[in-house]
Each structure stands twice: as C-alpha cells, then as structure tokens.
C-alpha cells in the first residue's frame, strides 16, 4: 500500500467521523433494518438479562489483553 492510498482511506473514514465533533457518535442508522429482530447479547441463558454482570464479564476479558497487569509490579 502506498502512502497516498492510506491517506485517501484515512480521509474517507475521517470524513465519516467528522459528522460529529464529540466522541460519542450517534449509533442510529439512517436506513431502516428490514430483517429479523436480534436479541440482546446479555439476553441468553448465561446472563439472563443482567447487563451489568455481562459488562463486567467483558471488562475482565478485555483486561486480560493487558499483560502489564500480570506482573508483581502491577499487583
């Protein structure tokens, strides 16, 4: 990939993002979805709708991607 392509691509993505100035973008799509309704991720057997518990689980998994937490200095 050459530098120009990278720039073009970045610009395209940036343009899309520039629609909103702050970091929390609206996640609403302009188009309407015609397919089947999907259940919430935390709706199944495992979390039984407990969103907080589910988010905690994801946060724990995310933290395991940080090896800095696995040394004594971090404990």
């Amino acid at each position: 990939m050459n530098a120009r392509k990278l720039t073009t691509m970045a610009a395209a993505v940036a343009a899309a993002a520039a629609l909103a100035g702050c970091t929390e973008l609206s996640q609403e799509s302009a188009r309407s979805y015609m397919g089947k309704e999907d259940a919430k991720a935390y709706a199944g057997d495992q979390f039984k709708g407990d969103k907080q518990k589910w988010e905690q689980s994801l946060a724990t998994r995310a933290a395991s991607q940080n090896e800095y937490l696995r040394t004594q200095a971090a404990k």
Partner: peptide
C-alpha cells in the same frame, strides 16, 4: 459476546497486538 467473551481473534493474538473490547 453472549457468553461474556470477546472476539476469539483478539483474545488469542500472539503478541496482544489485536485488541478488542469496549
């Protein structure tokens, strides 16, 4: 995600280069 886990690709990344999550 419904199991409270993150994408397998990132969770298994050899050098933790690929990160997934909130």
């Amino acid at each position: 995600l419904a199991e409270g886990k993150l994408p397998a690709c990132a969770e298994m990344c050899s050098t933790k280069a690929l990160l997934a999550g909130d």
